[in-house]
């Protein structure tokens, strides 16, 4: 067993929207079950359970997951017991760190009423809007399909919850424009990025295996680029997400501009404590604190450039 000792002399704490997080790691929504909480005590700076919707969702029929090179595609369909049952059972997620709640609705009004429902719950420190879900009023296009709909839903949530930070979780497509729109509408932070649209095919059976979202190390460079670009154009903090699998990955995301970093799929295949441990070693060797990393790449010319201007 790994002894979960706090390394002395390394400052892991970061501040996000006025909340003090004792480490910059946050579980990505939908990747940490109640049953697995015993394995992660001391790892995360905040808790973030699976997305809650207004009423229970059964989720999609199986198969729901498929492995891909250095990643996986999932199509879970937001299976959850609905916000009331979710809140009834929320205390299990109290590990002594701030609790963030991820919400999703079918309409702007549903998003707003979820935020209203959470506004007075003192256990909840922040709300993350899962904007990758389809907006049934816009022909099923995701809420983050464009800046106009991002602005509308974030503004409605902002009006519904005034005294808790709102994080808008964005997908990679159009992320810079959507980030600007979310900030303008009052988001306190941006989570960048959600899974990438992906497909797996069973060639032998000649059918689609899983049509869903790609996560894992395969998407890390895409997510890093999004964090780098977004953090260059907004004032609000960015929470990096996408393929974080090692302590070095955490450092890379923070250097690229993230204030905190979400660990998702990697927690299926590694002990998240090892990721924190590696990050701690990185800080110790660099004689830096966690918060000093954020955005440290800014103003430093990239050594290598690709086929386009950076």
């Amino acid at each position: 067993m790994v002894v979960r000792e706090q390394k002395t002399g390394v400052d892991l704490a970061v501040e996000l929207c006025g909340l003090m997080l004792r480490t910059p790691l946050i579980p990505a929504s939908g990747t940490l079950s109640r049953e697995a909480l015993g394995e992660v005590e001391g790892v995360y700076g905040a808790m973030l359970p699976k997305t809650a919707t207004p009423v229970a969702r059964a989720g999609n029929p199986p198969p729901r997951v498929a492995e891909t090179p250095a990643g996986m595609v999932n199509s879970i369909g937001l299976q959850n017991p609905g916000v009331e049952v979710f809140l009834r059972d929320l205390d299990a997620f109290d590990l002594g760190v701030p609790i963030f709640i991820s919400v999703a609705g079918d309409t702007v009004a549903e998003f707003a009423s979820l935020c209203e429902r959470l506004a007075d719950d003192e256990r909840i420190c922040a709300v993350e809007l899962n904007l990758s879900c389809p907006n049934v009023e816009c022909g099923g296009l995701a809420f983050c399909a464009g800046p106009a709909s991002v602005e509308e839903v974030v503004a409605a949530c902002r009006a519904a919850v005034s005294d808790k930070p709102i994080l808008a979780k964005l997908t990679n497509g159009g992320v810079v424009e959507n980030a600007r729109a979310a900030e303008a509408a009052g988001a306190d932070a941006l989570t960048v990025i959600n899974t990438l649209p992906a497909l797996t095919v069973d060639a032998r059976m000649r059918k689609v295996l899983v049509k869903g979202g790609l996560s894992g190390p395969a998407i890390k460079p895409v997510a890093l680029r999004a964090v780098y670009d977004v953090s260059g154009v907004v004032r609000v903090p960015v929470v990096g997400s996408g393929g974080v699998t090692s302590g070095t990955d955490v450092a890379e995301f923070m250097l690229a501009g993230a204030t905190a970093v979400q660990v998702g799929t990697a927690s299926f295949v590694r002990d998240p404590y090892e990721i924190l441990d590696e990050f701690t070693v990185y800080l110790k060797e660099s004689t830096l604190s966690a918060k000093e990393l954020t955005g440290a790449l800014r103003g430093v010319r990239p050594v290598l450039t690709g086929g386009e201007d950076i």
Partner: peptide, 23 residues
């Protein structure tokens, strides 16, 4: 026998349909 993502209840990938609806 189901494909699994995590094995610890986190990903909801390995579900089976139950009587009365849901997984």
């Amino acid at each position: 026998e189901e494909r699994m993502g995590c094995g610890n209840g986190s990903c909801n990938g390995c579900v089976v349909p139950v009587r009365g609806g849901g997984y």
